[in-house]
Computed example of a mutant assay.
Amino acid sequence: MIELSAKLTTGTVYLAGEALECCISFCYTAQPEHRNSQSHCDALENLAWASAQIHCFYSTSKNTGDKTPTIGKTTSLEVTSCDIGDVVFHTKPKILFCDLTIPLGETKTFWYRESLPIEAPPSYRGTSVKYSYKITIATQKVGSHIKMVRIPFRVLPISPIMNLQDLAALCGNETTEELQPTNPFSEERKVETPLTMALQVLQNLTARRSPNSYMITNTRGKVGRFCLFKSAYKLGEDIVGTFDFSVGTVTCMQVSVSLQPEEVIKSKSPAKNVNKETSSRSMTVARYHEVTLGLTQSQLILPIPLHITPAFEVDDVSLSWRLHFEFVTTNEKLLPNPEDKDWTAPLNVPIETMVWNLPVKIYSTLPKQITQHSIVNDAYTMCIK
Rank of each mutant, 00 (worst) to 15 (best):
S256M: 12
R154Y: 06
G294D: 15
S5L: 08
V79M: 06
G126W: 06
S115G: 09
S81Y: 15
A311K: 08
Q369E: 10
E326I: 10
A48H: 00
A379I: 00
C227W: 03
Q53G: 09
T175C: 00
L8H: 01
K134D: 14
F57N: 05
N212A: 10
E174L: 05
T206D: 13
V376P: 01
M197N: 06
Y133A: 04
P181C: 04
F97R: 01
Y363T: 05
E277Y: 00
E237R: 02
V264E: 15
N357M: 08
L44Y: 12
L116K: 02
T193S: 15
N212R: 11
I239G: 02
V285Y: 11
C23E: 12
T292P: 04
M148G: 03
T60V: 09
K268G: 12
A345F: 08
S115C: 11
L195T: 06
Q165V: 06
E326N: 14
T101F: 02
N218D: 14
K276S: 14
S144P: 05
R287E: 13
V255L: 06
L306V: 09
K276D: 12
D244L: 10
Y124D: 05
E18S: 07
S267T: 11
F89L: 13
S61T: 09
L116S: 03
T206M: 10
D315A: 09
K361R: 09
I304Q: 03
P211Y: 06
G65I: 01
H145V: 08
A271V: 03
P303E: 07
V240R: 07
R208D: 10
E21V: 00
N377V: 10
E114H: 02
Y28L: 01
A169S: 12
I239R: 03
T136S: 15
S186M: 13
S374V: 02
Y380I: 10
I95R: 12
I146H: 04
R225N: 12
L323C: 08
Q297F: 14
N36R: 13
V13P: 00
N377D: 14
H145L: 10
E263T: 04
T330S: 15
H55D: 14
